[in-house]
Design a protein around this nucleic acid. Structure first.
Lengths: 233, 233
DNA sequence: CGCTTTTTTGAATCTGATCAAGACAGGTGG
DNA sequence: CCACCTGTCTTGATCAGATTCAAAAAAGCG
């Protein structure tokens, strides 16, 4: 877990072209609010206006409150992710830390207006936005047409890709989120998540170590259980 | 249903700033493939590469094939909508017409590269992309945490907003999609959709006329049944 | 008007939710 | 260092909402 001493510098290196004027950089910096989010503390984000959020370090969840007791995790985000936090509309949204996280928050409209002077920045935003959209569509498929086991397998594969550490033929994951978070992300209950993990454990596809540790022993076996296209053949 | 004699002109008026150079316009035009999609004909779109699609007239569905017999409708698009058709990855995607539709197809990478010379165009793309993302996230909430009745109510409200015609306090909708399409969009079966519509009809919230005609007699009553936030209060 | 396709309705089944105990991890204080 | 305590996770039994299977009714078309 790397700690950025200067969140804005990390953001700068990723988003800005090398040639950007120092003055321009400063205008963006003036727009940024830097925050440290802690899992213990309350809800950090007023989503009264659409924001652009950059995760400098840590891990967060974007949560939608469907109603009083129903929460839906829209997405998980990790270091170097950049995404749009929507303003509250039919549902209310909030950003919650899974672990201590450093984030940078920009008002979306102002940022886009400023970026309109430099196409490279807009282009970067567009591509990140397209990636978010692609992931959201994959989630739609999972929630709409996959069984509990398939959703769980897909989730593990997605986490392996994003935060896993390859260990020979296996992949080791340290899950920063609880079973409840996983359940709220997959549209299931914690009990169901636990049962699916037990099934995968029984099939020797994964090992679990403590609450957070997961070792994927066979990505192939997991893919077969994930309900993706190639398996239908 | 208006018919555009010149799809590219319609696209042009929406996307390009007035000041765009004629030469630049021509370069975009050279990139565009114009197609007429028909419901009867087979699958029109090779999604071998990411595309940008503009619906000049008509109505289409973006479908993901989860596996042999499982289809998920990712989204419906209507006149003047602009969106990204993803290339095939873990799942395969296709675009299918709900009615005769005129569409414009651009290769995404080439379009974005060309647009990089004009920030206003990139900005338009970004905003449309953000809208797609927002709709996709709303769908995630529906599929993850809503009951069959709530999903059906949300669907009708969304269609009322996008293609409905206000009639006093009511809204009249002419649904271009079949029950199967609705079911595939909401992650349910056609039987369940039919049952939910019957319930809403029984409650005098809607009337149905033939297959396609729906009259929302009370948007408020429908919102109460849609499981959105305000109702929890 | 008759034929095909889509939609509606009904009954049985099943997957995942709910309710209810236990087991385990991991932190705290003796 | 270990016993205890708290919150999370796992497992089991029952329940409910949506699916599946089956058939009838309605819509749209030639």
């Amino acid at each position: 877990m790397k700690i950025q001493s200067e969140p804005f510098d990390a953001f700068s290196r990723l988003v800005f072209p090398d040639a950007i004027a120092e003055q321009s950089r400063k205008r963006f910096a003036a727009l940024a609010k830097s925050r440290v989010l802690d899992p213990a503390r309350g809800k950090p984000l007023d989503a009264s206006v659409s924001s652009l959020v950059f995760i400098s370090s840590g891990a967060v969840k974007l949560v939608a409150h469907a109603s009083a007791e129903r929460e839906q995790v829209i997405a998980f985000y990790f270091s170097d992710d950049l995404f749009i936090l929507p303003e509250d509309g039919k549902h209310s949204f909030s950003l919650q830390a899974l672990q201590r996280s450093e984030v940078l928050i920009f008002p979306y409209e102002e940022f886009a207006a400023l970026a309109q002077k430099d196409c490279a920045i807009l282009r970067y935003l567009l591509d990140r936005s397209a990636l978010s959209l692609h992931r959201s569509r994959e989630k739609t498929i999972a929630l709409g047409r996959k069984t509990a086991l398939e959703r769980t397998a897909s989730f593990l594969l997605s986490m392996a890709e994003r935060i896993g550490r390859p260990r020979g033929g296996s992949v080791e994951i340290e899950l920063p989120m609880s079973r409840r978070d996983i359940a709220d992300s997959l549209g299931l209950t914690i009990e169901t998540i636990s049962r699916q993990l037990s099934i995968l454990r029984g099939d020797k596809v994964i090992e679990t170590h403590g609450r957070a540790g997961v070792l994927i022993r066979s990505c192939g076996a997991l893919e077969q259980r994930s309900g993706s296209l190639r398996d239908a053949a």
